[in-house]
Amino acid sequence: MSQKDPKSVRLSRRSFMTHLARSGTVLALGGAAALALTQSGAPQARTDRKVWQIDPWKCIQCGQCATECVLDTSAVKCMHDFQLCGYCDLCTGYFRLDRYARTTDAENQLCPVEAITRTLVEFPYFEYKIDEEKCIGCGLCVKGCTDLGNGSLYLQVRHDRCLNCNECAIAAACPADAFILRDASDPYIVKHRGPGQL
């Protein structure tokens, strides 16, 4: 019994190496997890999730938000900051300017899906509302409103639709680098608060 079987000696060395490799992997895993979690200084930055959002001050309304999203209908929708709106009669986000007749017929509207409804508040002020179910996020109205109006219409990632992919497909395609990461607790940019808010 005192004489050790040479085969069992070989086996025990092998299991020793296995134990060593296993503990090494456990340590490496723990280290990697700790490094990843402590990468950012502030503790609240580690717990708060980040979500994608469009910085309206950088957006150039190129229209790719409508087509690049991995969802069938883009998670990017037009948002209306009523505090900024001029309630114009001749809304350059609503009417096509290359038409003679200024009626609310479909062919005179900028929106390709008729997602904007125009209602009279009191003459000469009109309220424009976006129907998010219809909106495809093409940004045509945003371009019209930003170029010639107040810029109260602007594109935002709607977080009841956004899947918050690791790598946002629109962000990868965005020519203006307008996609930013924001804290999930405060995911929207309210435009009338002014530029530079994060």
Binding site: A36, L37, Q39, S40, G41, A42, A45, R46, T47, D48, R49, K50, I180, L181, R182, D183, L198
Partner: peptide, 11 residues
């Protein structure tokens, strides 16, 4: 202090 939009990995 990293900027507010810096990448952090969720737990």
């Amino acid at each position: 202090t990293p900027p507010a939009d810096a990448y952090t990995v969720p737990w």
